[in-house]
Each structure stands twice: as C-alpha cells, then as structure tokens.
Nucleic acid binder design. Sequence first.
DNA 1: GAGAAAATTTGAACGGCGTTCAAAAAATGG
DNA 2: CCATTTTTTGAACGCCGTTCAAATTTTCTC
Lengths: 204, 204
Amino acid sequence: MTTDLPAKRARLRDDLILAAETAIAKGGLSALKARTLAETAGCAVGAIYNVFPDLDALIFAVNARTLEKLDAVLAATVRPDTDPETAMRRLALAYHGFSRAERRRWTAVFAHQIPDGSSPPDWYLGVVGKLFRHIEGPLATLLPDATPEVRGGLARTLFSATHGIVSLGLEEKLGPAPDEVIAQALVVMTRGWVLGLPGAVSPR
Amino acid sequence: MTTDLPAKRARLRDDLILAAETAIAKGGLSALKARTLAETAGCAVGAIYNVFPDLDALIFAVNARTLEKLDAVLAATVRPDTDPETAMRRLALAYHGFSRAERRRWTAVFAHQIPDGSSPPDWYLGVVGKLFRHIEGPLATLLPDATPEVRGGLARTLFSATHGIVSLGLEEKLGPAPDEVIAQALVVMTRGWVLGLPGAVSPR
DNA sequence: GAGAAAATTTGAACGGCGTTCAAAAAATGG
DNA sequence: CCATTTTTTGAACGCCGTTCAAATTTTCTC
C-alpha cells in the first residue's frame, strides 16, 4: 500500500489544528498539552514537531482560524450603505458578541504571548489586518475628506479602543462587568465617535 | 538571640516582592522562577509558600505596586483646573509614556492570567479602581449634568479604550506601531471624546 | 538555664510540562 | 528483493511550581 506522503502530512496538520482548537475551546490556552494533542490527533508526541516548529506555531494556526471566523461575522454585520453610526455600533456590538460566544477561542488570540524578541509571522499579521477593513467603510462616509492613510490609522485606533473595552470587560480585570454594561459603553463610545471624530481629525 | 517573628516574615515578604519585581522588570512574567526568587531573597524555595499561597499571589503584590506607581504618575499629570481636553490628552499620553517606560512591569499587570474560576482579590481590584478616578475630574467638567454613576461608568470605558490603544500598540499584536503613531492616535481619540461625548451621553 | 513541646524553615522529591533525538519503521529506487 | 533514504516514534532530558517529612529554631514550663 503506497500512501501519498505530502497528503498525509497535510492531514496530520489539519488534525492537529482541530485537536488544538477543541482543547482551547474547552479549557483555554493552558489546556493545550503536547501529549493530549498527540493522543487526540492519533500520532506520537514527536510528530507534532515534524509539522510545526513548536506549539506557538500551532497556536498561531488556531488563532488565525478564530480571526477568520470573526472576519466573517463582521462582514455579515453591515451592508455597504448603512449610515456610519449604525454601522459602527453594529460592528462594535458584533465584536463584543463574538468575544462572548467564542470566549476561550477569542481570549487565546490575545493571551498568546510569544518569546521576547520574536514577532508574529507575516501571514498571521495579514489575517489580523483584514479586520480593520470593516471599519474603513463607515469611516469613509463619516470623513469623506480624510486620506486613505489617515482612515487606515484611525480604523486601527477605533479597533484598538473597542478591543480595550471588550477585553477588559470580558476578563473582568477591572472588576465585574456585565454584558449589558459593556454593550452600553460601546453604544455611547461609537455615538461619541460619530459626533466627535469629524472635528477631531480636521481641527479648526 | 531572639528575633521578632512577625517582623522576620514581613521582611521576607518584602524581599520576595522586591526580588519578583526585579525579575519581572528584567525578563517579564516568564522570568519569574521560584528557585531564582528564593536564591535572590535568600531563603529556601519552600519558604515562599510560607508567605504566599502560590506565585500568583506574589504576582498580584508586584502588580499592585506597579499600579500604585502608575496612579502616582497620573496624579502628578493634571492640575484640578485644567480644561477637559488638555487633561484627557495629558492623562492618555501619560498612560502611554508609563507603559513605555515600565514596559515589562506594565505588561505583567495585564498578561497575568489567573486560573479559570478564580478572580483577582478584592484589595487588588481596589487598587485598580483608583485609576479611573483621574479621568472623572475632567469628565465632570465636560459633562456637568451627568450623574456620578454615568461618569463612573464612562471613566471606566475611556480608560479601557485608552488601554486598548496603548496595549495593542505596545505588544504590536496588530503589526508595527511606533510610539509617535500611538501618541497621535491618542491625541485624536481624546479630542474626539471632548467633541462627541456631551452629545453622546445625553442624546437629543 | 535546661529540657520538652510547638512552630517554623528547609530542600530533596514529585508530578507534569515542552522539546529532543537515537532507534525503529516505512518509503523509495536500483 | 535488498540497500538506502526518509519519516515516525516515544523514552529521556531539563526545567517548572509545589509539597511535605525531616531538621531547625522558637517558645513554654519548671
């Protein structure tokens, strides 16, 4: 029996990602163990290192899938002609909703710490970068005179701010934070942006 | 030779916190090792567990000190009668500056993950809570009609948003993010708040 | 102050982790 | 079909936080 070798590797790769995803979804990043992974994927512990250089690389693969899923959710959230305030509010609330629905998977994306010198692989940053795109539409309507560079930078800023509210709320790092409180904060915040940003980016 | 026992414990406690703080400042949370700690503080590994239930508790002690330091920096940043926009901009930039100056210590505060069920001790949340107080001053000037509850919630929201921008920038989770870009984002963001928040919290 | 009892400190040992690598197994090719 | 190369395997390595029986120190009693 001759088995196609690159196909087998690819299958193991997928199995490992799936096993890792399940483990993370069930118990967070700290539930990811090489030995459990190998057993679930039906291979030897050493085999993991034939496919991924280390567990960090495997985590990036899982996190990329999570971000792709988030990307799809955000894409389905707003139609192109929605007014900016509604669009931004919906995007922020969709982000919040996703973080709650996919709590552990989503937490893993930002909790994942890589060794000091290194930085995420380029292909991964590409996946991350796609997320800002969703905010750029409403921003273009809101700030028709802004250059693409300004809009791009601002999209990143708004994403980061939204992320801060959602993540500190979810992890309850600042104390208890019920869903409804966070959602309300996002509504006020986005409304504030729509009212304030036009004046803020092109000051008198 | 009779040695005062609670004083000795207290001294060891301080030595351990100092050793932990130094280790974190030098190599981040992952550089905190029980054996190194014991050697630096001049005690046996087991002695750590006579003073702290586990390393997590020690990390909380270190993080509380970091937050106290940040609190002091923020307190020294604005005089009471500063106009809201200037005050908020200075606070945001001071937060950013602190995160850069105390990079590892500050990262440890938010990177610290506690086991799934548990939550931070109350005394620690108290230290965290003090931070929002600094934003409430400018907010009161900006929104004289808002209730203390609304102001308190909003202070938390603005803190979280600022934190999002600073932290995603610092950890470069979204790609390269030079200091100057982050600072500019904070300036635009705070300007947007001052222009937009009054209308956003009491909508027409 | 001596000796017994209680409290504290000690560090070797434990279980678990990511990762490695010599040896075994499988695939290739002549 | 065997020799050679490639891939897979899992016991072993080094390091981790934490524990706990034994050693030490402190306290108490006479």
